[in-house]
Simulated scan of single mutants.
Amino acid sequence: MWREHQHGRIDLGDQRLEYRWIHPHKPGRPTLVFLHEGLGSVGIWRDFPDQVAEATGSGVFIYSRRGYGRSSPVDLPRPLTYMHHEGLDVLTHLLEHLELGPVVLVGHSDGASISLIHAGGTQAPDIVGVVCLAPHVMNEEICVASIQKAKVAYESGDLRARLMKLHGDNVDCAFWGWNGAWLDPDFMKWNLEEFLPGIRVPVMVIQGRDDEYGSAVQYETIKAKAGAGAEVVLLDGCRHSPHKDQPVATLAAIARFVKSIG
């Protein structure tokens, strides 16, 4: 039984996914499922999930998507619909396999987008809330410019060496799968607005005012179109990673949101 282990890999048949599990502190709380950013993995969250577990009493499941961390590799180039596949197919299969009961999705960047796709594009019977850290529902020039800078840092700086600690043999798969898709000219047409009206659970968006990967149009669109409405929390002195740049405020917002649900 996977719940007996704090760390491991879940076998979904066509792929094995690295995971970390934090047991709940209190009964009756929804489980929080963490979905990492486009260059992330289980390890990138550090101890933030532990802090959230302590503050909410919830169990927390963190996993690395295919092509990241110690999960199965993935063929490149990734299709430009890779987040659709993750949200509609993989996450659905994973949640059915885990049988966690009521779930709050907590996604960052790509992970937030995947969470919105799942909540609005599937029946999502177990989802009771969605927390989006710096989500994207469309591509923007500001995002492309930052991703181009990341390419330079990977090719000629120390970014590859730093990411190796998170991904090991998957490092090139993780970086180029993300970077190649976002810099494809056709990805400027990528858009998730069609999924927003189908979201029937509360949504919280947490975004830094200085986010270098997305403008106000991202959270304004979610707030205007999410089917059950969305609360937006804007943080000063914060860039693209609210849980790193403003961990205290981000933790407080997530804890308040989770407690309001269950």
Rank of each mutant, 00 (worst) to 15 (best):
N191S: 12
D75T: 13
A119H: 06
S156G: 10
G180W: 07
S156P: 06
V144A: 10
S72P: 09
Y82G: 01
V130Y: 02
W182M: 12
Y82F: 14
L91S: 00
P135G: 01
V130E: 00
F175Q: 03
A119P: 03
I142W: 14
W176S: 09
R160S: 04
C143K: 04
F187N: 13
I114L: 08
G180K: 03
Y154M: 13
L166R: 03
S109Q: 00
R162C: 05
A112L: 04
D158V: 15
G120I: 05
I117V: 15
W190L: 04
R162Y: 12
I117N: 00
D110E: 08
W176Q: 12
P102G: 03
E99M: 14
G129A: 08
G87I: 02
E86Y: 14
E155M: 11
G101S: 11
V90D: 12
L159Q: 06
M83Q: 13
G111A: 09
S71M: 08
G69I: 06
H97C: 13
D186G: 14
D186Q: 15
G157A: 12
L163D: 02
D169S: 15
A145M: 09
N139M: 12
E155T: 13
A134G: 09
M164V: 14
R78S: 11
V171N: 04
L76A: 10
G121I: 10
H167E: 01
M188Q: 13
V137Q: 00
V103E: 01
G107R: 00
P102L: 00
D172G: 08
V137Y: 06
A150F: 10
S72N: 10
V104T: 00
D89R: 10
S72I: 09
A119G: 08
G101K: 10
